[in-house]
Amino acid sequence: MSEANSLKSVMAQLAEAEKQRAEPELTSRQRRARTVARLAAVQALYQMELGGQGVDTVVDEFNNHRFDADLDGEPLAEADEAWFAEIVRGVVSGQKAIDTAVVTRLASGWRIERLDATLRALLRAGAWELREKPDVPREIVIDEYVELAKAFFDAAEAKFVNAALDGVARDARG
């Protein structure tokens, strides 16, 4: 994952963005826990891709060590560990269909392999939620992953994530 931003600055950006929106029927604490779960899912997918570790190994590592750990000198905020595991396992089990959904929304001739590994993880996690969690409003899903993109990349990549996930949402949800 990009080293440009510390975990502290990423969490601060996500906290500020979370103030701008509300996921229905969830408390502020539950929304925050989902945001942290999404961030961790992107990190886990990235780690799996680069390290070649299996899904159960990575999910167990996060659940047993990372969520309770002190990262970058800051404690990781409470995560919705079940949501995290569902995203990671869902992306892995549905990766072929998810990649197809994402590639459909890339510029002609682009392959998902050409994307940065962090962008792939962001798009895969966001596409999975859009396809598999119709109870979560599309705006929430897209906004969350766009904010994650902003935390790690410049505005151009965030716009790219926004456009790609918006297209996936239209395809998946009409």
Rank of each mutant, 00 (worst) to 15 (best):
A82W: 01
P134T: 13
E78N: 03
L119F: 03
F153Q: 02
Y46P: 00
N64T: 08
D80Q: 04
L119V: 15
E86H: 13
A169K: 06
A172L: 07
K133E: 09
Y145R: 11
E18A: 15
S6W: 01
A77M: 07
L71Y: 08
T27N: 02
W110S: 11
R34N: 07
A85F: 06
I98W: 05
T57R: 06
K19I: 13
A40R: 01
N162Y: 11
F62M: 06
L148Y: 08
E113H: 05
A163H: 07
E23S: 11
V10P: 00
A37H: 08
E157L: 05
Q20P: 02
N5H: 09
I112V: 14
A101I: 02
T100A: 15
E113S: 14
E16M: 04
K150M: 03
N5W: 00
L122A: 06
G52R: 07
L71C: 03
Q13N: 14
E3R: 06
E129S: 10
F67K: 06
S28N: 07
A85Y: 05
A85M: 02
V91Q: 03
G167W: 02
A117Y: 05
A155C: 00
A44I: 10
D154T: 11
L50S: 02
S108Q: 09
L123I: 08
Q47I: 03
W83D: 15
A41Q: 05
G51L: 04
T27M: 01
V58P: 00
V10E: 04
E144T: 14
A12I: 03
W83E: 14
D171Q: 15
A4G: 04
W83K: 10
V55L: 02
R120A: 09
R111D: 13
T35N: 13
G174S: 12
Q43H: 12
E147K: 12
A15C: 02
S108C: 00
V10W: 05
